[in-house]
Write a protein that binds this DNA or RNA. Structure first.
Lengths: 316, 316
DNA sequence: AATGTAAGTGGAAGCGCTTCCACTATAGGA
DNA sequence: TCCTATAGTGGAAGCGCTTCCACTTACATT
């Protein structure tokens, strides 16, 4: 295993010069730089992140804390799609990802230790709900760059990235209206979740803009001609109800949901939905944490990922 | 941030004694040990993994390479459920998880570098399909402990952990038979996937044991009274076909599938299935890689996770 | 009393880097 | 011509640990 000294010797330069080349310092002449690169290639040298971490102040590692204790992965696959997006950005920038789970007692302890150790990770990504949890207070003391997956309603001096759920709700309502539906209900309201509240608020805004009142569908869907479902499971139930009631989709009733989950594609009819790009969400999270790590600047960004519409069979 | 020297000073002992305490060396008297522990607690000292990695030979970090380039997380959430199991075991044993994705070109490079750097990870977990990939050859040179998620059909001198898919197939057939079905077909045969082949082989074994011949259902399901579906998407289609054909479930036709995916629970009727415990699979992967890392022994284990049955409405 | 042994301990080297500091050229200005 | 910046470079210290080696005890053996 070649070390930096081997490279230095082979290139006929000093150890610090090699280091400078590795770190893209401008204070190296082109001639020397080439010499060093040649030696690196010949020796197939790879710098040790461990040593770099000890010596300098960067481990090129981002920690990520997942709140996946409770849910089975397929009950809540969304966070993993976000993870994929994060990975991509992180890897492309030459960083590593250290996964810190909360699914054990030790999770908490470990997460804390990572920060206490200071040098283990350069930055931390975590889900918004964890920011409310008690252990997060410990983190705050160590002014480590942090980015939240998911909107923070209270100002917390932390950057966050989320789907633009307000826009999603608005877009769903406005699309249905544009297709000729005008008694549009919203199903599955849930005050406890920020994304749910935002989707509903987006819906509300549009409904008010056209001078209407929000609706909640009754048992027989008799007073509505379209239903926006909070999520896929909700859509699934609404769909089954419609079938039992003998309602024709999309003629008598239009249905929309959010997230282009496989269900939406396999059901009969397939469901029109507002597609939320979780992979893009993850990418932005990655970009933001790297920006904070590299620039070491403190300004807090609130990033919303635009949504798009996926027209299928459940709407006119 | 307290260091080992601070602890040594506070406890009034040498630095190496503190190190011995940290590493559970028996060569420390109880008195001294207590003194050191007290100092550690008072200083809220946490050893730096980075420094330990550089000095010793362990980083207490396991690398995991996910082959998640292509599939959206919800198209294939299974691997993430395995991941949850791995996390749990790894964290409980005081190790960290370094995630290495393949979802970029750099993925390959990085994964290789991790190994080349040698000290970055103590062991490596990867999906069976990656073992066949060209980049795996590079890994082999560095005799790092490796465990495969998923069965390896060819002997590769690598431990693997997988669901007992053969048993799963056998169990499905035998359960249907025990409920009075005797014209049992297998739907969704796929030669290209080890798990699919094993499920089918398990089915075959039972069918032969009762002196029958394997069946493949025709378009109208006229010659069968039960169908074992390779996976949930397959089951979903079979279910829809049955409805169109007006077949009564479970009276006229019994349906079974594998994996207790949410679909199985939400469909009408709900689907009886062989539950494969992917979380347990992950736990075993974690245990096995830690065993190899700690014991540094080379014996190859082949671990099969037992399956269980989940009776729902689609069978008599 | 002299020797041997084992348990316990501290000192120091070294893991592979980064970075500060001191140094040497080289070129430009007086 | 001499002096002074400045770009470029090498040496050495140090990051926080582990581990080897040398050393001191205390006690059992002759």
């Amino acid at each position: 295993m070649a070390t930096i000294d081997d490279v230095a010797k082979k290139a006929g330069v000093g150890r610090s010069t090699v280091s400078r080349v590795l770190n893209n310092s401008p204070k190296v002449s082109d001639k020397t730089r080439e010499l060093v690169f040649k030696a690196i290639k010949e020796l197939d040298y790879h710098p040790s992140s461990i040593a770099r971490g000890l010596a300098g102040n960067s481990t090129y590692t981002i920690g990520i804390i997942l709140d996946n204790t409770m849910d089975k992965a397929y009950a809540n696959p969304f966070i993993y799609e976000v993870l994929r997006g994060i990975e991509k950005t992180i890897y492309e920038n030459g960083y590593n990802l250290l996964l810190v789970g909360m699914n054990t007692r030790r999770g908490n302890k470990l997460a804390t230790e990572l920060i206490l150790q200071g040098k283990m990770v350069d930055g931390l990504v975590l889900q918004s709900q964890l920011i409310m949890s008690p252990f997060f207070k410990i983190i705050q003391g160590y002014n480590l760059p942090v980015v939240s997956i998911g909107k923070l309603d209270k100002k917390k001096e932390i950057s966050w990235v989320d789907i633009d759920n307000f826009e999603a709700g608005y877009m769903a309502a406005s699309y249905l209206y544009s297709r000729g539906y005008n008694k549009i209900a919203f199903e599955g309201i849930d005050d406890s979740k920020v994304f749910a509240v935002d989707r509903y608020r987006g819906y509300l805004k549009f409904i008010h803009e056209i001078g209407s009142q929000p609706l909640i569908a009754d048992k027989f869907y008799s007073d509505v001609d379209a239903i926006i479902c909070l999520d896929n499971m909700c859509a699934f139930k609404v769909l089954q109800n419609c079938k039992q009631l003998g309602k024709k989709i999309p003629e008598e009733i239009g249905i929309m949901t959010f997230d282009d989950y496989p269900l939406a594609e396999y059901l009969e009819p397939t469901i029109t939905n507002i597609d939320v790009d979780l992979f893009a969400l993850g990418s932005e999270v990655g970009k933001e944490i790297l920006r904070k790590v590299k620039e070491r600047d403190g300004d807090v960004k609130e990033i919303q990922i635009p949504v798009s519409i996926n027209v299928r069979e459940s709407t006119k």
